[in-house]
Amino acid sequence: MIARVLPGDPARLALGPRAPQQAVDALRAELHLNDPIFVQYWYWLSGVFTGNWGISLFTQRNVLIDVSEFLPATVELILAAAIIDLALAIPLGMLAGRMANTFVDNTVRIISYIGIAIPAFVVAIILQLTLGYGLHIFPIIGRLDQSIQPPPRITGLYVIDGLITGNFSVAANALWHLVLPAFALALGPIAQEARILRSSVVENLNKDYTLAEISHGLPERIITLKYLMKPSLIPMITIYALDISSQIANAFLIELIFNWPGFSRYGLNAMLSKDLNAIVATVMVAGIMFVVANTIVDLVVSYLDPRIRFQAESEE
């Protein structure tokens, strides 16, 4: 709705400043822009459920088609970032917490501060310049090498489609292209989450139950990786959910820099060109992804923390 009250005439923007007024008026009528806002909302709502998401003024296609084309690229990018995030934040946080105030802890601390302080797009450019352009280890832009055909479309995630259809070289190439953008996207959250995990580990190390576990003679490995890790992960996972959800919005800079044909970039273009139907669809899809990501994490947290699980059951 907010999109409707922005200044500027979408029809005029779509047709350009030199189009005749009659053409603009005709487009306005075609788009129902002269109807009251509630009527417009009804048109849109009934369209959402029948697959007619409106025509994008920018691509001249049904927005649903645009979304299904651009969304998988972003989902793939964010999933890769989410995996890198967990895979690095947990070991770094556990290590720093277990070895608090040692050389290891201080090293992780410095890396974390750098990760928090440097914006993702700067990290992206540095990575492109060093590992991409300088050392030629990773490709700089795109989802696949130019010479490689995308795999047959099943999910739209190239790595997964490649694996399903047996095109392993395509999957490997797609994975190779994912490394830099996903890492650039993940670095900030990794830094933040490692700090949070570290402080819960330090706190839980001084709890009586940890002292009791030590005095029962449990091996250090079991204490750290089982009894210390599970309660310490809970605050970190909650922040992780928020970080991953907000990646949907943050990804657009990374998508621009890596020329990644993704959904965040599509949404940004829609906003700049005041493409009403595309903006509304972007907001809706981002909202749905946010809800899905948070639901998954809530389930994980309730698995980790029985107090939450049983509280919910007893309230039923």
Partner: peptide, 25 residues
């Protein structure tokens, strides 16, 4: 000393709630 903790000595803490890990049965 771990052998002693496993076979000879034990300690009971003041606050029974704090001495059990809250997220394991």
């Amino acid at each position: 000393f771990t052998e002693i903790r496993r076979k000879k000595f034990s300690m009971i803490f003041q606050d029974p709630s704090a001495a059990l890990n809250p997220v394991f049965t």
